[in-house]
Design a protein around this nucleic acid. Structure first.
Lengths: 117, 117
DNA sequence: TGCCTACATATAGAGAGCCTACATGTAGAC
DNA sequence: GTCTACATGTAGGCTCTCTATATGTAGGCA
């Protein structure tokens, strides 16, 4: 129920951001809301994390952005590039491997059900 | 397969270390080997990560250590304290929550089987 | 008019921890 | 005499996330 430990998020933020942009372009503020909603309220990622991360992902080519004005307010809308989609697939498989590896150390006796996509 | 991304380990190292010490005291070098073995070779945590982390965990009271000489070589053997055992339980539940939360964002449609301990 | 909240983006600087690289030393094999 | 495995440790760097702050619009409310 408590919030997720920020340190644990390290190295997973990219996957999170690419993932919410998979099916529709969104602007930063909406991305934060989507993250909160999808996680059932467990994730409340601060703007100081999200905005720099989005710029970083754009810089490396995983995202592209353009400005729009909606209701008098300016938005920078991000969308996944082809490169970003590829990266997302990689992040997903890395995530599955990661949970498998850590899980195998943390709970050696646990029968892990890895559901296929 | 590939090694786990070091950044992803952030915030999980404590859980990993406490976990391998759960049932038996071990010295640093053996801890690294245990981590590698339990993970099926996927984890190769460098000494520059493990030794400082062990000291940190001792400093906060989760571990206790004592020196021993075995075969002419000096070892610092760490064991889990009561406080550390408590912390390990917390880390495990945090891990389950963490994977649930990230998983729900990364793979919203996936049926997740959360096996009970 | 002024205040507050929601919407929306952005940067500076701090903090933490994992990494690379290096330093040191013993034991045993060849 | 050299090499590898065993064994511990520190210094410094790097990157990412966070807190705090700045800026500005729109709309509700008193």
């Amino acid at each position: 129920m408590g919030d997720v430990n920020p340190d644990a998020l390290r190295g997973h933020m990219d996957a999170l951001l690419l993932s919410v942009l998979e099916h529709e372009p969104l602007h930063g503020y909406a991305i934060i809301e989507a993250l909160t909603e999808r996680s059932g309220g467990a994730l409340s990622v601060p703007t100081g994390t999200v905005y720099p991360a989005l710029r970083r992902l754009e810089r490396v080519g995983y995202l592209a952005s353009e400005w729009a004005t909606v209701g008098g307010r300016k938005r920078r809308t991000y969308r996944l590039t082809a490169s970003g989609a590829k990266q997302l697939a990689g992040e997903r498989s890395a995530w599955r491997e990661f949970t498998g590896v850590i899980g195998s150390v943390l709970e050696p006796g646990l029968r892990r059900a890895e559901a296929a996509g």
